[in-house]
């Protein structure tokens, strides 16, 4: 089987600060990869480079066969390619970023109708299905600010899934939530993993990582310090840094 994401020697600077110093790794279709690391270790930056919210300076990245235009001029073809890559990849943010001026169902159909030019009726039908799937169909006509954080995040997941992505990126999806609301979001993510979605998850929820992840990547000093199955990383890490970090958060 071919990897769905291939990352080779990815480098990203902010001004003079080297955040990603030559990351290389592959992700297989259906794989769930949890990325951990101290704050500032570049975990979020890595995700954000993949869908071009951040522009890396060098390296090669293939997403579902499409090459990220690293170092390339912004031609019309490149712009279209970025959009194409983004529509193949859903992203869930720490602070949800639902569109506050639209109802829940309108949030969910926004991508399909505006970007994919899908027929509104079809989009609504599938949007309702997705809302049921994340357990939010009752709030169909509410506005985002009438929802709790956990509810918002479930809607945000539905909104991303409405684009029928092949890959889902989760950037600390539960970090902004009250502790009692974390579970509902994690269980939706677990369900998604069980359905075979390729997922890259930046999180500190080690229970989720142990249960759902196929691999854990520990990032530090701009590189991958350790990469392996959750069992191994969490119980017998090879690197001292990994052990210290896990001791801190567990």
């Amino acid at each position: 089987m071919e990897p769905i994401i291939i990352i080779k020697d990815l480098k990203k600077y902010f001004q003079h600060l080297l955040v990603l110093d030559g990351i290389s790794t592959n992700v297989m279709p259906g794989e769930v990869v949890v990325i951990i690391g101290r704050s500032g270790s570049g975990k979020s930056t890595l995700l954000r480079c993949l869908n071009w919210l951040e522009e890396p300076q060098s390296g090669h990245v293939l997403v579902d066969g499409m090459e990220l235009p690293i170092g390339q001029k912004r031609t019309a073809e490149v712009k279209n390619r970025i959009i194409e890559i983004r529509t193949h990849m859903g992203m869930v943010f720490q602070d949800f970023n639902l569109f506050p001026h639209r109802t829940i169902i309108d949030n969910v159909i926004e991508g399909p109708v505006i970007v994919k030019k899908e027929d509104r009726k079809t989009a609504i039908a599938r949007g309702e299905e997705l809302l049921s799937w994340v357990g939010m169909i009752e709030k169909r006509d509410n506005y985002p600010d009438q929802l709790s954080g956990g509810q918002k995040q479930r809607v945000a997941i539905a909104r991303s899934l409405a684009m029928e992505p092949k890959i889902m990126l989760f950037d600390e999806p539960t970090s902004a939530l009250d502790p009692e609301l974390i579970g509902e979001v994690l269980s939706v993510m677990k369900k998604l993993a069980e359905e075979g979605m390729t997922m890259l998850v930046v999180t500190h929820e080690m229970g989720f990582a142990r249960e759902v992840a196929d691999r854990i990547i520990f990032l530090g000093d701009g590189g991958i310090i350790e990469d392996g199955p959750p069992q191994k990383i969490m119980e017998s890490p090879e690197h001292e840094d990994t052990r210290v970090f896990l001791d801190h958060i567990l």
Partner: peptide, 14 residues
């Protein structure tokens, strides 16, 4: 906020 713009971009909007 930037978050709104990023959400729109990540859906593939121009």
């Amino acid at each position: 906020g930037r978050g709104q713009i990023e959400a729109a971009h990540s859906l593939g909007m121009t």
